[in-house]
Amino acid sequence: MHIHELNPWRTLIVLTVFVAIMIVGFVTMREPLLTYEMDMKTSVAETKSDDSCFYLWQLVGFIEKENADVVLFDIRDNFVFGQGHIPGAENLSAQNLAREESIARLEELKNKNTTVVLYGDDQLQANGPVMLFRQVGFDNVKALVGGYQYYKQHKDDLLATQNDSTLMQEIARYNYAEMAAPTNGAAINKVSQKKTVEVTRRKKTAAVAGGC
């Protein structure tokens, strides 16, 4: 028999402490602003699809204010936006994308079935945010292919870009192997064949550990 066993309140104390911890835990649990709705596998598969792309020629209706179900966001910063932007675009700089107001705005647009197009200076700038928004469930978000630079080059004739082959991304524009071939006429340097890649499996480390 220990002294603490004489405390008539001991069970009640334990019970109260446990319940209090649970209540504090559930109360302090915060719902994250964004949660992934697309699992990794679908996200990887999506990189091959065309769904997240919005082409310049599709913008024609928007710029002429006929197309109400598209909203264009310029994710460059405010200063650059002021120097020139696609007509009708709103400025929502990338730094502010994670803000609650921005998310709420996107949520609202999603409920209205509006297509949201993000563009940056080049396509790369919008690529990350668009991927993320699609992964967290905003499947109405798209990236403007080519970005602002491409728009600037073609703003006089947007429809002509429909058949522009230079727009194609992720295509080798050169014959790499030929171009990088040794100039002295030796065989093409096929790095991949001569290379020995030593693959060791990731190990779980053995650390020195103490006992009791």
Binding site: T47, L124, N127, G128, M131, Q169, E170, I171, A172, R173
Partner: peptide
């Protein structure tokens, strides 16, 4: 080839 796939 470009940087989009790498960025993805």
């Amino acid at each position: 080839n470009d940087d989009i796939a790498a960025d993805q």
